[in-house]
Design a protein around this nucleic acid. Sequence first.
RNA 1: GGCGCUAUCGUCUAGGGGACCAGGAUGGGUGGUUCUCAGCCAUCAGACCGGGGUUCGAAUCCCCGUAGCGCCA
Length: 504
Amino acid sequence: MDQCSPKERGVKLVASGRVEVRVRFAPSPTGELHVGGARTALFNWLFARHHRGKFILRIEDTDVARSSENFYRVVLDSLKWLGLDWDEGPEKGGRYSPYIQSQRLHIYEKYAHKLLEEGKAYLCYCTPQELEDYKRRLEKEEPLRYSGKCRNLSSEERKSLEAEGRKPALRFRVPPGTVWVDDLLRGRVSFENRLIGDFIILKSDGTPTYNFACVIDDSLMKITHIIRGDEHLPNTPRQVLLYCALDFPILRFAHIPLILGRDSSKLSKRHGATSVSYYRGQGYLPWTMVNYLALLGWSTSDSQQFFGRDELIQKFTLERVGKSAAIFDPMKLEWMNGEYIRRMDLDELVNLLIPYLRRADLIEEKMDSATRQKILKVARLEQERIKVLSQIVDLAGFFFTGDFAYDPIPVEKRLKKDYVPSLLEEMRMRIEALSPFEEKELEELLRRLARDFSLSPSEVFHPLRVALTGRMKGPGLFELAGVLGKGEVIRRIERTLEMHKNSL
RNA sequence: GGCGCUAUCGUCUAGGGGACCAGGAUGGGUGGUUCUCAGCCAUCAGACCGGGGUUCGAAUCCCCGUAGCGCCA
C-alpha cells in the first residue's frame, strides 16, 4: 500500500457518516448550459436534496479567453429555469465564497507555493513548442507524457533559462507508485503513476489548471461527493495525487455516464439543438426537461417514467445510476412534453401560450378578457395535440387571423371539386339562418345538407374544414367553428368561394 | 500511441445464476373509435457484441477478443 493510501484516507470520510452531504456543480461559462451539463447538475442537485445536504454552484472561469459574462448569465438562468436552486454560490454567497474561480487566484497561488517549497512541485521552463516537438519524437509505443526535463534543474540552470526570458510553469512532481480511485459507480480503478507524467498545476501566466483549482476548491469548500461526467475519470488520479500532496482528505467520486448525440459521440454543438435555452425557447416545460434528463442514466426498478418533484428527490439514489453512456433522444423528450402539457391545468397552459401567440403577432400586446377567453377555448381544443408550446402558432394560428395561408394539398384534394361551390353557397345561406349558432345545431345542419346534396357527411365536413382553417388536420370541426363564431365562419366561407371563382 | 470506461430491442432502460421462449417506455407497423389530426384502445415486429471458461444451470460471474466512447496534447 502506498504512503498516500486512498483507502486509508477515504475511510475517515465514510466513517463519519453524520457529515452533511455537500456537492457542487462547476460549469465553465464558455457556452450555454447544454443538456449534458444540466444532467450533471441535476444528479448533484437530486443527491443533495435526497440527503438534505447542500448543493453548491461554482463557476470555473479560469480560461479567461473563452469565458464570458454573457454565458455566465445564460448558465445561471438555465439552472434557475430548471428549478435547480443552489444553496451556496454566485448571487447567493456562502461561507466559502467567493465561488468564482477567477476571484480565487490568490488561493491557488498560495497552495502552489506551498507545494513548490516542499519540493512536491517544480518550475518548468519548457515552451509549448518544445513540448510539442518532444511529443512528436516519442516512440510509437510510448505513452504521451512529460519527459521530466526540468525535474532536477540546478539554480544556475534556472537562472540561465530565466535570462532567456522564459516564464516558468509549475509542475507537480508525480511520485512513484500506484493511485486508485474508489468510484461509487465503478468500484476501484487503478492507475500507474509512471504513466501519468508530471503535470502542470500553474500555467506560466499564473492561472491554475483544471485539476489543481478543482482539488483546492472542492477541499476548501468542504465538498463531500464529486458527481461529474465520465470524461473526468482519467483526470481523477492526478487529483488524488494532489489531495495527498496537499494533505487534504480524498473525496468520494461518482463518475456518471456521458450523454451522447445521435451518432453516439459526445454531445456537442454539431449535434444541433443541445442547449437548455434552446429547448426552453421552443416551449419545453422545465419539468419535462428534468424528468427526461433524470431518466438518462438513472431508472427505478419498475422503469417508472413520470415523477413529481418530491417523488424524484425521494427515489433518486446513486446506486441506481447506470454505467453506460446514453444517447439523447429528442423524440422521447417531445413525447414527454406532450404528456405534461396534456396533464396541465388549462389556465396555466393559456399563460404559457400567450407569449408565443404574441411573438407571432396573433394577439395584441394588451389583452382584453374576450381574447383571453378565446385563447382558453383554443387551448382546450389543442391541448391534446400540442407537444411543444411554440407549435401553437402553426397549429392554431388560424383561430386568430382570417388571413391565413391555405395549404395547397388540401385545397387540391378537398376544395377543387365540382360540387363544392354550390355546396358552400347553400351552406352559407343556411348557416346565416342558423339560430342558435351552437355545435349541435351546426352538426345537424351539415348532416342535413349532406343528405340534401346526396353527399356523405365527410364530403361536406372536409371542404368546410379547409375553408375555415386552410388545412386538413385540426380539432373537431364543430368545436372549432364554435370558437370562430357565426360571423367569422360565414366570412371564411365567402373568402373560399371568392378564391374558387378566381382560380376556376 | 498509451491509459481508462462501457457493451440487453433503432433509442432510454428493467434484469444482479434458475421465476426470462428477456419486462416497461419511446419510436415504427396494423386494426378499432372519429369529420381529419391528435388522443385513446387493441395488436404485431424488434435486443442479451463474439469466443472461451466457472456451474447441474449464465443476459447475469471470470478471462480473452472486438467495438464504441473518453482522457492525455
